[in-house]
């Protein structure tokens, strides 16, 4: 099972990196969203896979008995999903605002912070 997930992670990472290398802001953002999913899957798989048994303690038991899915990566991923979503939203709005103000969705055209004809720092005192 892990090998299929490793293949899936490979695909997620490759596609997200390929999209992030684009100059179009919206592709970069979609690439970032995929990157989040890929990393989550990677952490999930690294904690080993167990089918269909969530880490819940039975109402009459004091601790886990038998084999269940690893709870630790799940706890890590749960918050990661929410945080990556809120960052995705932030970047989406940021990209949208940049598009509105700069009139382009091409990252090469976004040179407000580092202008192409920047004369460099002054050499006087």
């Amino acid at each position: 099972m892990e090998s299929v997930f490793a293949l899936l992670v490979t695909a997620f990472m490759a596609v997200s990196v390929y999209l992030m290398l684009s100059r179009h802001i919206i592709r970069v953002l979609i690439g970032l969203a995929l990157l989040g999913n890929g990393v989550n899957l990677l952490i999930f798989t690294a904690g080993r896979l167990t089918r269909e048994t969530p880490p819940l303690i039975a109402p009459d038991a004091e601790a886990i008995t038998g084999i269940v899915a690893n709870p630790l990566p799940q706890a890590l991923i749960l918050t990661a999903i929410v945080i990556s979503f809120s960052f995705f939203a932030l970047l989406l709005v940021l990209g949208f605002r940049a598009y509105q103000d700069l009139g382009t969705d091409d990252t090469d055209g976004m040179r407000a912070a580092e202008p192409v004809d920047d004369p460099g720092p002054p050499e006087g005192y």
Partner: peptide, 12 residues
């Protein structure tokens, strides 16, 4: 706390 769920899911 005892079954699937929690603040993150509920909030979403």
């Amino acid at each position: 706390h005892n079954d699937p769920g929690g603040g993150f899911i509920g909030g979403l």
